[in-house]
Design a protein around this nucleic acid. Structure first.
Lengths: 134, 134
DNA sequence: TCATGTGTACTATGTTGCATAGTACGCTCC
DNA sequence: GGAGCGTACTATGCAACATAGTACACATGA
């Protein structure tokens, strides 16, 4: 879990995104228990309320569910939910592409940039999988 | 000029982006005068200080230059500057692609989404060009 | 000359979202 | 009963952003 406290993206949202990623790429699986609010809070040096906020949001998305007194667990549908929401939610990618086209880049140039981004992403994923579980 | 006051992107940054786009796609050209601080402020219902901030930033990027008492004008290099900075600055696109890969989408699915985004962008540009100058 | 419209500079204040601090309570399991 | 879970609530701090208001210098043209 890598958090950038200076990013424009709020901490709670970064936590959400990282959990989605870890679940989608199989590091965390259905039935697995999420790290407890207090534990994650202590480990990342982030206020428990902020962790709680992120977890509540993951719950609202049906990605995890909580059992008071026990803990919080990944749902059976989590992976599908993440995948389909990524497919539907293309607004921010659309904006990026629009920006490139507006800036005067050609179709081929854009395709090239995307291809490079894809390679970078795959490299990064390998390192994430490697560092999260051993 | 379309501004979303509820966006997470600051107003001054939206203004910068829109000017970049208008210049890059040729609606505004080298030597053209930018709308005055007070005029744009009044038209968009945004505080003059905010417009000023956006204009100062465009100046720092050498996209426009100001002549006190006269106005503010698009530089000769503006278009090139915008194009090359767009090519270099792929960080946010990289993040979007990474997010898709992390969410479990395949290479083909991503290519497909990008292609659709490209079409959308071209459609949008036509309407921008149409609405800004007549 | 003077009014108008331009850029520029500055201080002060308000707003909002985010993050933190601190406390408290209920549940489960050993 | 204690430890470790989730949950709820109020209060406070903080930083970026936006606004409000004022003031001054410059260029242009009537």
């Amino acid at each position: 879990m890598i958090i950038d406290k200076r990013s424009r993206v709020p901490l709670y949202e970064q936590i959400i995104n990282q959990y989605k990623a870890l679940i989608a790429c199989g590091v965390i699986k259905t039935g697995d228990q999420l790290e407890s609010v207090r534990s994650l809070s202590a480990r990342l040096g982030i206020n428990p309320n902020t962790i709680q906020k992120a977890y509540m949001e993951l719950e609202n998305l049906y990605i995890c569910s909580s059992a008071p007194g026990k803990g919080r667990f990944v749902t059976a549908d989590a992976k599908n939910i993440i995948l389909s929401s990524a497919k539907e939610n293309t607004a921010s990618l659309d904006k990026e592409i629009l920006n490139l086209v507006l800036s005067g880049l050609t179709h081929d140039e854009i395709e090239n940039i995307v291809e490079k981004a894809y390679s970078k992403a795959n490299t990064k994923i390998k390192s994430i999988k490697f560092s999260e579980k051993g």
